[in-house]
Design a protein around this nucleic acid. Structure first.
Length: 89
DNA sequence: CATTTGACGCCAA
DNA sequence: TTTGGCGCCAAAT
């Protein structure tokens, strides 16, 4: 189903399919997109993606760190907390 | 077309 | 455990 989509397009679909209260790491998204080593490319794609319909704030680093956000990292953290995801260890 | 940049990840010191 | 450096991929210059 995703095989015919391009890498960037796959990433958009994958991120869009992340359920509330759940988060994925860049590595996980990259793996689902078909390129486990494209973790950097994921950030590049999401960084340029301005579609609010895509919960790009649910994508975090493999270290359980926030990572970044094109709308403000602080807002990203707030969104995750609001959805029920708690970071801290 | 060649090089650099960037919301990353992993390994070695 | 923390830091530095290298690798990987896509988009921008």
């Amino acid at each position: 189903m995703f095989e015919k989509l391009d890498f960037t397009n796959k990433v958009h679909e994958i991120v869009r399919n992340i359920p509330k209260g759940n988060v994925l790491t860049y590595k996980q998204v990259a793996a689902k997109a078909g390129s486990p080593k494209a973790c950097r490319a994921i950030g590049s794609v999401l960084n340029k993606n301005y579609n609010l319909e895509i919960p790009c704030h649910r994508v975090i680093r493999s270290d359980n760190s926030l990572g970044g956000y094109n709308r403000g990292s602080e807002n990203k953290r707030r969104l995750l907390e609001q959805e029920g995801y708690e970071f801290k260890d």
